[in-house]
């Protein structure tokens, strides 16, 4: 097949959008499981929900640093985040887990293997996220690609409540172009690499939907304390 030649393959110049995205990456968050609580499924889920809540605060601040995101209306910013928040969390866990064998690195102090996931009732989700990790590991996903793909996942969240569709399309185009430009400069040996990365997004959406369903049922159960932002976003997906 003929190769598509990206318009802006700026020979070896670093892509400005990718550079900004690298600079916007939130700092690591520690899980800090409560040492006073005995090990149990409730403790594991409480730790994860607390970690997710703190990461969400950072992810909202991160979104503001995506070039062009803050130019969208507040309503459209909210709609994108309400649709994509779990995809962003899952993609971050998947990227962090790339160096781990069959374990998920939720945080440096909270790494979960299949046995621990089973005890927490999270085996299905653990398996699904590991499928994503394997996909990225096969491609040797780079940090630059990860940050760009994460921004694309947000801009491409398919919310049904977008008011200015053209503006959101403009953001998608700018981020897509940044990915094409990066791949053109750094992976000219594989002209389909950008497409391969984009083609991982359906699995990310599927895994994220699984996670939302699971945490919604935990919420219904009422045994795990959840912070307000996490609850607010879970409710946005019901």
């Amino acid at each position: 097949l003929p190769h598509r030649k990206p318009v802006s393959c700026s020979a070896h110049a670093e892509n400005k959008v990718v550079t900004l995205l690298l600079g916007a990456e939130p700092e690591k968050v520690c899980a800090m499981p409560d040492p006073a609580l005995p090990d149990s499924d409730i403790k594991a889920l409480t730790t994860l929900c607390d970690l997710a809540d703190r990461e969400l605060v950072l992810n909202i601040s991160w979104a503001k640093h995506i070039p062009g995101f803050s130019s969208l209306s507040l309503s459209d910013q909210m709609s994108l985040l309400q649709s994509a928040w779990m995809e962003i969390l899952v993609l971050r866990v998947a990227f962090r887990s790339l160096p781990c064998d069959d374990r998920l690195l939720f945080a440096d102090d909270y790494i979960m293997d299949a046995e621990q996931a089973k005890c927490a009732g999270l085996l299905e989700l653990h398996t699904a996220i590991l499928q994503l990790v394997r996909r990225y590991r096969c491609m040797s996903l780079e940090r630059e690609e990860f940050v760009t793909l994460k921004a694309i996942a947000l801009a491409n969240s398919d919310s049904m409540h977008i008011e200015d569709v053209e503006a959101v399309q403009g953001l998608q185009d700018a981020l897509h172009e940044a990915l094409l430009d990066y791949e053109c400069v750094h992976h000219s040996e594989d002209p389909r690499r950008a497409g391969k990365l984009i083609m991982t997004l359906p699995l990310l959406r599927q895994t994220s939907a699984k996670a939302v369903r699971h945490f919604c049922s935990i919420k219904q159960d009422g045994r795990v304390p959840m912070h307000k932002l996490f609850l607010e976003l879970l409710e946005a997906n019901i």
């Binding site: 601040s61 503001k64 995101f69 130019s71 909210m78 932002l229």
Partner: peptide, 20 residues
């Protein structure tokens, strides 16, 4: 959207927006 007060507040408060 009325219900999503925390998200709304965090979006309004976060600093350093970047324009294209």
């Amino acid at each position: 959207k009325e219900k999503h007060k925390i998200l709304h507040r965090l979006l309004q408060n976060s600093s350093s927006p970047v324009d294209l």
